[in-house]
Design a binder for these strands. Sequence first.
RNA 1: GUCCCUAUCGUCUAGCCCGGUCUAGGACACCGCCCUUUCACGGCGGCAGCACGGGUUCGAAUCCCGUUGGGGACGCCA
Length: 486
Amino acid sequence: MSSSGAVRVRIAPSPTGYFHVGTARMAIHNFLFARATGGTFGLRIEDTDVDRSRQEFVDVILEGLTWLGIRWDEGPVYQSERQGLYAPYVEQLLNNGRAYRCVCTPEDLAREREEARARKQDWKYSGRCRGLSDDEIRRLGAEGRPAAVRLAVTNEGETAFDDLIGGTFRRRNEDIGDFVIARSDGRALYNFAVVVDDHLMEISHVIRGNDHINNTYKQVLLYQALEWDIPQFAHAPLILRPDKSKVSKRKGDPSVIDYRDQGYLSDALLNFLCLLGWSPGDNREIFSLEELIAIFQLERVSQSNPILDPIKLEWMNGEYIRQIPVPDLAGQVRPFVVQAGLAAESEMVSRAAWFERVVAQLQERCKTLVEFSAAGAFFFRAPSEYDVKGVEKHFSKPGVSDRLRRLAEAWNKTVDFESETIGATMRALAEKDGTKLAVYIHPARLALTGATAGPGLFELAALLGREECLARLQHAASAIDSGLGT
RNA sequence: GUCCCUAUCGUCUAGCCCGGUCUAGGACACCGCCCUUUCACGGCGGCAGCACGGGUUCGAAUCCCGUUGGGGACGCCA
């Protein structure tokens, strides 16, 4: 813990060009923890691997966090800009004998690794260079053999740490081995940079993925060698795909940005990711950000790997879609409708009130924002074809085209064209015919929307407007007379 | 392979620390019924699980050991 006792956490993603849902989940955990404790949440970009890091990849992460509503209080701090900070501490360790220079070549190490594999053992460095004197190092350096720096790890005892999520973790030191903390070109390596940065940033709690546990032992060793306070750790299990393997870009798993583009609401995704592998203990599942801040507890994060179930995410997104006020929802759906080519942005602006009514009709029928375009396309353009099963069922009965024409005639004569009058007209027609209302409704729906399912007929007809409805009714009647449905 | 972690319905989980209240609760999905102009929403009901084997105990989902399964880490990557 930092000397002040204040909670300071951070998320430290490496910019790989993909905003992993696991990264998002850890960001959420850190963020909630900071908010709940009045602490500080920082963002640090782990880009010491200059070959793989690019600004545009960083931008993806910032964009994703911002979209999710996760605000960071400090940073982004770029590790690549902090190289100068690490060198003195490497030097310190070298001087007090806790670290040593290693002149093994990549080939030497590859050979060691192969031998270990042949013996079916975990590879760890032999410690061959540990006894080399400064003179020898200098001589080998003159021969063109640059030296990396390794931490000297004792073979005695074990390294252990208490984890807020996983309890006590321990590992024998002899299984860890002397690991590299600085490359032969002088640049610090991940494990070293993390420890120095976390110390300098006074990080009190390191909340990260399970995949770092074996790094944590090394980092604890480093804290001890540097004689620094060790932060509190919390390692959350990794999110798995339905096939139980790691979520990955290569396998085509959606990134946070992908979920956004597929029409998921940021609040829903945040809620879902937070609930994945965590439960408040009661049976609630839907939480606002404020509620999450109040009730989220790291200690209650489960210790086994959760599988991301896209179906449940979809359900939760539907819950959010149904929950939010129509004007908000309409605003979120709008870009998707424009994207789908149903209407121009300018048209959406001029018909904003009408569009809100459309969205209200679709609200409880869509689970993602993209679905609105498919489910509501008929609001923007006449159906180009009629559902085949629907045609068989509703357009093939004798007298259908006649009924559609009589409906058009009746609709043409009403004083206004609102859902009440539309419905009343149809009921009157059905009554006069001595038939059920359904006899009019189903063919009319098919004629107006091209589909057999959708919003209430009276409501959608009103939104379509009298003129458009009459045209679609006539068109369907003609199509039926021309042989459609027979 | 070695090391580390882990194990409740198909999936997410509650319960486990402090054994009896668990004929194991909730959610998603699925099935049925109701509501209903269709679909959806909503309501009601159903299906389905303590991985296995040993202990400990009057009693174990809960404690201990082992087996098996799953995941992660084994880089001069992060």
